[in-house]
Design a protein around this nucleic acid. Sequence first.
DNA 1: CGGACAGTTGACCTATTTCAAATGTGGTGG
DNA 2: CCACCACATTTGAAATAGGTCAACTGTCCG
Lengths: 250, 250
Amino acid sequence: MRPAPDLDEPSGFDAFVAKLKARDRISAEEEAALRGLPADERDIGADRIVVRARQRLSESLLLLEGMMCRFKDLPNGKRQIAELNVAGDFVDLHGFTLEYLDHDIMSLTPCRIAAVPHAALRELGETHPRLVRILWFLTNLDAAIHREWELSLGRRSAIGRLAHLLCELRARLALVGLADDKGFDLPLTQAELAECLGLTQVHINRTLRELREAGVLDIRGGRVDIRDLAALERVADFDPYYLYLQRGER
Amino acid sequence: MRPAPDLDEPSGFDAFVAKLKARDRISAEEEAALRGLPADERDIGADRIVVRARQRLSESLLLLEGMMCRFKDLPNGKRQIAELNVAGDFVDLHGFTLEYLDHDIMSLTPCRIAAVPHAALRELGETHPRLVRILWFLTNLDAAIHREWELSLGRRSAIGRLAHLLCELRARLALVGLADDKGFDLPLTQAELAECLGLTQVHINRTLRELREAGVLDIRGGRVDIRDLAALERVADFDPYYLYLQRGER
DNA sequence: CGGACAGTTGACCTATTTCAAATGTGGTGG
DNA sequence: CCACCACATTTGAAATAGGTCAACTGTCCG
């Protein structure tokens, strides 16, 4: 295990730690333990399958930079993206207890990742039970996001779904400083948005136009320009409580 | 904490422990630690909200008997059930790290539950890190089920969705001895099935008829009679790997 | 300049919803 | 034992959100 680095020194772990601190009080000793986790950093190109379903895992990947998604395919070729992952997400932390994943994970952009061996996580469990609860929380947060997507997929209209996804992404990216009220970078094609929302690419195109013509937002060149955030959250029916953004300390 | 009971003595924990043992090797000492968890047993009527979203939690509920569901509502009144829970499920274990839920939990039948204080789970974390990983696994299993439901809601046809849900339920109920190849008891109305599947009650009725007329199964009087399991799994496109039924030991 | 994709648009189609009414069914009180 | 009520199921007819198909238009990059 590498020595705990100087806490002031910027590292790829920053987005991750920032996200934890936004939700829980983390002591200096705990932060050092997290930053001291052995982590093999790597770069990955866009549109690469990073983790394959059913593959036995011995490490979990922290996404330092870039965007990834987890998805499942049907034999007929239809694809459903189950969640988007942004910088600071521990994309397959659930693989630590599941041992293999039930879905693939793919990079949507070039990404920088840090691979943390499961052995190190197990060790952390012996020494820092509270940190384990915080990691456990992160996987439960993924489940909460899945539930909100189930609600969208099952019960929201196309425009509501699309607006909701954009609100969620904005909130999650803002947490790591990658979005504000004006907008954010969105490296997704309309076809990929369709795969998130259970719609077709053609219908995404029309729905996007509807949002544009209503003066809500505009997507151009991989960037979401929000014209009227309040209106966006209204059509999305967005309530971020499911993201657990301001949980008290445990 | 009450003393560890005789392991041979039947208890409400049996379905729970059976489910763990089906997936992981549990030592006698570990089983004793689980069964020794303080648990306040209670009975609950059908159609009662058992845990409310946003409510601060200090205990988690193990479902000993009966069926529950977790759901979210839209302001327009539409409801999406995110998961069904059967005997042996730790229905709001995720509340231990989330502190409050993002959804309601409701009983679908009369239920018997055991409430385990979070303090006892925290203590277990200090003494039995491996058991914590097994509990953590259970919440990750819920997330895997959510992902499969996202796939159904986003990409499967009505008949595929319905068949898939019935396959999943059958597999999960079989794990605790409540289903076999012939069928199982299903205490859901067609309206509730619709709320699971993102469809309308009317369409569930028609889809059920389609399955009946194809000789696949018949639902009558709260019981699913499976006529042709292979056909059912074929229209469902069912592959139970996402249920992690035969994981090796960690 | 050409080729590969991503985005746009129109015309038509269909799975599922909506609305409305009829038919079961199980439980309760008289 | 029957009448009645609430609720679940069934069915038909009409409406629609979103899908499908096919072509055209960027736009980026080598």
